[in-house]
């Protein structure tokens, strides 16, 4: 058994080496296509993160001071209920807003550790009767006693969604074309490999080597090309995530942004990036497997 596994691996890498120009071309296209897929997934995940709590209906959020008194909170609550600018509100108490904080900053534990349940501001999330009222609400409430700040990210999210969804479509479209290119290149590579070993293959068939014995090294070759490309692509996607994360952190330090959580939420967490990496690696193996399987079916039949 080990004798045969040895043979398969030796054959596979020997083929790869003999076919190195084609193999490199195939691996490069796999890298490009899967990096695009990965980047698109990263953006998609970022937007999903940003919108997960700040969903479409939410117009503004009133952040209370963490130490605001009950009467201050009740006063604001009553005003909000009576206001014609506002349709409805939900209130996040200390526990709920701390949970939200943990979720939004799950990739920055330093931020989370700076807060406790009692030092986390409570939040009113309000739906506006008209989206254009946001500024008016801001002016009316931001200087009331007990209010820390008023944030109105709704419209920005919408614009961001629009831009990123176009971006995503473009990226996925390009990725799809590149995936097709990788499939074709892997197919061609394996066809070349089969062609350059046609004499050996003919002898193998003649002396009764099984179909799988003949096919496996070629299929493995395609899968390994896909895998190498995919691993490099996932590393690139990881790097991209870190660059995005650093960028966001730097802008946050520079500007006195009113909505820090929104920006940083657009960066996928490293946990999510790992999942994206796994998806890419599986896709790489699948693309390699399909490309080589088709070639093997087409050029190696009994």
């Amino acid at each position: 058994m080990s004798f045969s596994a040895n043979r398969v691996l030796r054959d596979t890498f020997f083929n790869l080496w003999r076919n190195i120009q084609y193999a490199l071309a195939a691996i490069l296209t796999v890298i490009v296509s899967l990096s695009l897929v990965g980047a698109a997934l990263l953006v998609k995940q970022g937007v999903a993160n940003a919108t997960v709590e700040w969903s479409h209906g939410v117009g503004v959020s009133l952040w209370m001071n963490a130490d605001a008194s009950n009467s201050e909170v009740n006063g604001i609550s009553t005003q909000l209920k009576q206001s014609t600018l506002i349709q409805s509100c939900s209130y996040l108490d200390h526990n709920a807003s701390y949970d939200l904080l943990k979720k939004l900053y799950s990739n920055q534990p330093v931020v989370v550790s700076a807060f406790t349940i009692n030092t986390t501001p409570t939040i009113f999330n309000c739906v506006l009767s008209n989206p254009n009222n946001a500024i008016e609400v801001y002016n009316q409430y931001s200087h009331q006693p007990g209010v820390y700040t008023v944030v109105y990210p709704g419209q920005e999210i919408k614009t961001m969604e629009k831009i990123t969804s176009i971006l995503q479509i473009i990226m996925l479209g390009m990725a799809l074309l590149m995936v097709i290119a990788s499939l074709v290149l892997i197919f061609v590579t394996i066809r070349m490999a089969i062609f350059s070993r046609r004499r050996e293959v003919a002898v193998m068939k003649l002396v009764g080597a099984t179909n799988w014995f003949i096919r496996v090294p070629f299929m493995l070759e395609g899968m390994i090309e896909g895998l190498i490309g995919a691993v490099i692509a996932s590393l690139l996607v990881f790097g991209l995530r870190n660059i995005m994360g650093n960028l966001v952190r730097n802008t946050e330090k520079l500007g006195s942004s009113a909505q820090p959580s929104l920006l940083s939420a657009t960066v996928a967490t490293s946990h999510e990036a790992i999942i994206i990496g796994i998806i890419l690696i599986i896709s790489g193996a699948v693309v390699g497997g399909i490309g080589s399987f088709v070639a093997v079916r087409r050029f190696l039949d009994v």
Partner: peptide
């Protein structure tokens, strides 16, 4: 393939590797 293991073949052009 298993059947072919019972049959040997020789050709005009040798077909050696």
């Amino acid at each position: 393939p298993y059947y072919r293991r019972n049959i040997g073949c020789v050709f005009q052009d040798f077909r050696l590797l």
